[in-house]
């Protein structure tokens, strides 16, 4: 039973950063904007949140600062792609590189330091239930919020007028523009939301999951997030499922080290990337299926008159 509690509880915590960033990226992609700079936004969010938490002692301020900086970076991406008609791939890479540089500059003096991680809050009564309690209800607040974010994202995208507008813009920005929808504004909003969520995901990494700051600590998670939207074929539930799957893989890495199995640690570190490659090939093998599910204007340069 303890093993099961460890696996489920650990997976939830390991997937939290991925859930936040992936829901943000999904919303941005649904509006037609591919953001390859997620890695840089998570990294700056992580560095900023760590520094602010260290200085102020407030987790709330840390998360707000991380989200704010992630959003600022994403607004650069929004400006480049939506106003300046830059290629979305090139722009995302540019902002990502900028973000990684910023993160290392912000966190320079804090390199290798640790903080007390975000405390776990058992939910009263529920956490006392045997087995299920410690599995699900003995987590920190951000884990609960990330779980709530999944149905909330689904609801907004699929059951509200705003969601319909976002999806319409993602399918055909020209048609949406002709209908009088505020394409530029909504897209900018979606990208900004994505940046803020990436910032929160990064902040979770540095202030709760591994509470420390080290340059490069995001370790490709931002790219896995982009891959998750493809795995999940742009559907909220499937993207979330993918995030938990990757959470469990990173847990596997930890447990194999703990059990002292004789597998090179580098192979375990490479595992998430190898799994991503295999999964991408399996999911994408039918081009029609991908084309039907992806937002039609995803990646295309916006050209409104």
């Amino acid at each position: 039973m303890d093993v099961l509690i460890f696996i489920v509880g650990g997976t939830l915590a390991a997937a939290t950063a991925l859930i936040f960033a992936a829901m943000g990226e999904l919303v941005a992609e649904k509006s037609g904007v591919l953001n390859l700079g997620i890695e840089g936004m998570m990294a700056t969010g992580a560095a900023m949140a760590f520094v602010v938490l260290s200085l102020s002692g407030s987790y709330t301020l840390g998360f707000v600062a991380g989200a704010a900086l992630g959003m600022v970076l994403s607004l650069v991406h929004a400006a480049l792609t939506i106003i300046f008609r830059a290629n979305q791939v090139a722009s995302g890479l540019a902002v990502g590189i900028l973000g990684l540089g910023l993160s290392s500059a912000i966190g320079k003096r804090y390199e290798g330091r640790t903080v007390a991680g975000l405390p776990e809050n058992g939910i009263p009564f529920l956490s006392d239930i045997p087995v299920i309690g410690p599995m699900f209800f003995q987590q920190d607040i951000m884990v609960y919020l990330s779980i709530l974010l999944i149905p909330a994202t689904w609801y907004v995208l699929n059951r509200t007028k705003l969601g319909l507008t976002i999806r319409a813009i993602g399918e055909s920005p020209e048609a949406a523009h002709a209908l009088g929808l505020k394409v530029r504004l909504i897209r900018t909003g979606c990208v900004a939301f994505g940046g803020a969520m990436a910032g929160i995901g990064g902040a979770y990494m540095s202030t709760a999951y591994t509470p420390l700051w080290a340059e490069g600590m995001i370790a490709g998670r931002g790219w896995i997030v982009v891959a998750l939207t493809v795995f999940g074929t742009w559907m909220v539930g499937r993207v979330a499922f993918g995030a938990y799957l990757f959470g469990s893989i990173s847990l596997l890495e930890l447990s194999i080290q703990a059990f002292g199995l004789n597998i090179p640690s580098q192979l375990m570190s490479a595992l998430p990337y190898l799994v991503t490659i295999v999964m991408l090939a399996i999911i994408s093998r039918n081009p029609t299926f991908i084309k039907l599910n992806s937002p039609a204007s995803l990646g295309a340069t916006l050209k409104l008159s």
Binding site: L80, V95, L98, L100, G101, S104, A105
Partner: peptide, 20 residues
């Protein structure tokens, strides 16, 4: 050293903006 990365990132970002 992070200044190097930031300069490189800015070069690309500004280039993309100016390419417009």
């Amino acid at each position: 050293n992070a200044v190097t990365d930031i300069f490189q990132g800015m070069l690309l970002t500004f280039y993309l903006a100016c390419s417009f």
